[in-house]
Design a protein around this nucleic acid. Sequence first.
DNA 1: TGCTTTATTCATCACATGATGAAATATATG
DNA 2: CATATATTTCATCATGTGATGAATAAAGCA
Lengths: 199, 199
Amino acid sequence: MSPRGRRPAGENARGAILEAAREQFAEHGYDRTSLRGIARGAEVDPRLVHHYFEGGKAELFAEVMHAPVNPAAFIADVVAGPPEDIGRQLVRTFLGVWDDPDNQSALLALVRSGLTNEGITDQLRGFVEQGLLGQIMQAHPVTAGLPLRERRRRAGVIGVQMLGLIISRYVVELPGVADAPAATLVERIGPIIQAQLDS
Amino acid sequence: MSPRGRRPAGENARGAILEAAREQFAEHGYDRTSLRGIARGAEVDPRLVHHYFEGGKAELFAEVMHAPVNPAAFIADVVAGPPEDIGRQLVRTFLGVWDDPDNQSALLALVRSGLTNEGITDQLRGFVEQGLLGQIMQAHPVTAGLPLRERRRRAGVIGVQMLGLIISRYVVELPGVADAPAATLVERIGPIIQAQLDS
DNA sequence: TGCTTTATTCATCACATGATGAAATATATG
DNA sequence: CATATATTTCATCATGTGATGAATAAAGCA
């Protein structure tokens, strides 16, 4: 087809590969995505994928996933407001991140792959334990003073809300959740979370 | 190794295959599970898998998944009690099904595979729409009279609880959820659902 | 200009996968 | 006992996968 050597500039293959990878990882998850499929999607020779990402599929995935969102900043944003609004603010910030098209495909890929992958679930669990239980609940006057056992329980219920929200809205696409405006969900789920804090 | 022909009886290869398949589908999901891996797990020649399940991997999966739980009976169980207890009863029945070791691996397989598989999500969505929105909410005096739009929204929140519960307890295994006794979760999540019904 | 680096294509490897045909042997049936 | 049938192993196939070496051509630099 094309002549053999370097193309006459302005092609940006690397970018095309990353974009195709993001799309396909998000849509099919890690396993069902192949390097050759990505190359096809990027209209590029498969060898190029290895050329730019020498670590192969794993590195490409890592690159796509790389810090789609900064957990520290996320937490900071949530605890910035008044304690009686943490529940709503958590949902608001959360949906803000997930509804952002820049993050969405990466996050979706993470979830779609992570649920079968073992090891990414560790990451999720860690985030819930440290960020949620360790920081957000410390920022609330009521939960901060609770015994660990009780804090764990409440953090669990909050985790259920978050995970349920992701899966319902972005993966399974439940009607009434996937098609609801973010503000509606903030009003529906926020108070449920808040109740776990205020007691 | 073994001689070529039929083994001297009492081996029950078919059962071993099914068991190994159930395990591996549950642990790794559909994609990461191979026929050869199943055969290895069942200590059986790979050809046997095809011999007993001529449809191959798809039929084997279908067989393993075959009606792990009857939705109609499930719904009937939930709406059997008084309306003011539907929330708790829903969680109770739900956990009863999922905590049963007979069902668990099949259900896990379904979820682990379904979230990347596109098409099983349809099934999930359908169950939530028909069973939850169409039947359970009809059985409650308050929600039965609500306009469809509002019913959808509430069903959505309930769906979030159910999906969140599955993912948190069985897939991600959040502390505070995975290790909680069923009764605790009934008391924690049940009222949240009930509130969506009573209004 | 000439040399080096980078980008791109082509040609393969080794391997795992799902699938199928054929041979061998135990059990079931007449 | 003879014959059919069910169960098992072996031997392959075609395909798709991730990976690598080598050739070629443009771009960058001396």
